[in-house]
Computed example of a mutant assay.
Amino acid sequence: MSRSERSPLLLAGLLATAGVAHFVSPRQFDALVPRSLPGSPRTWTRASGVAELALAAGLALPRTRRTAALAAAAFFVGVFPANVKMAVDWRHRPTPQKAAALGRLPLQVPLVLWARGVARNAEGRS
């Protein structure tokens, strides 16, 4: 299996793991939901978990890979406010936790680029 074939499956695995985590340990994700969103934080936690699982499934299938990869890139942009909220909320925590929260912010860029790259590679194979 080549690197370009592994890449979408690794991204799918990352999203699937995150999606499952939203259901296994929802409380930690509830705390990241911006207060400005309507409804219950748990609803948003579940919805984002479902979205991550759906994106993972779409990435795993060559037929839906391009669309799922573009949707994943948009998803990574869309969840950025939650990462900002985490960084703000954790600014007074011990240094390792504060560093982890701040480290999530620039991590969104390579995730978006990875998803776009998967979409580009899927285009060439269609």
Rank of each mutant, 00 (worst) to 15 (best):
67 T>Y: 08
69 A>C: 15
70 L>R: 13
71 A>P: 00
71 A>N: 03
71 A>S: 13
72 A>P: 12
72 A>R: 07
73 A>L: 02
73 A>K: 02
73 A>C: 06
75 F>I: 11
75 F>Q: 05
77 V>E: 09
77 V>Q: 11
78 G>M: 07
79 V>M: 05
80 F>Y: 12
81 P>C: 05
81 P>F: 04
81 P>G: 12
82 A>D: 06
82 A>V: 08
83 N>M: 06
84 V>I: 15
84 V>Y: 06
88 V>K: 05
88 V>C: 02
89 D>E: 07
90 W>A: 07
91 R>M: 00
93 R>K: 14
93 R>T: 09
94 P>M: 04
94 P>G: 12
94 P>F: 07
95 T>L: 14
95 T>K: 08
95 T>C: 01
96 P>G: 15
97 Q>C: 03
97 Q>E: 15
98 K>W: 11
99 A>M: 08
99 A>C: 01
100 A>C: 01
102 L>T: 02
103 G>P: 00
104 R>K: 09
104 R>I: 02
105 L>I: 03
105 L>T: 07
105 L>W: 03
106 P>H: 06
107 L>N: 12
108 Q>L: 03
109 V>H: 01
110 P>D: 13
110 P>N: 13
111 L>V: 06
112 V>A: 09
115 A>D: 11
115 A>Y: 11
116 R>C: 09
118 V>W: 13
119 A>H: 14
120 R>V: 11
120 R>F: 04
121 N>M: 10
121 N>L: 13
121 N>K: 14
122 A>P: 04
122 A>E: 03
123 E>I: 02
123 E>R: 12
125 R>D: 13
126 S>V: 14
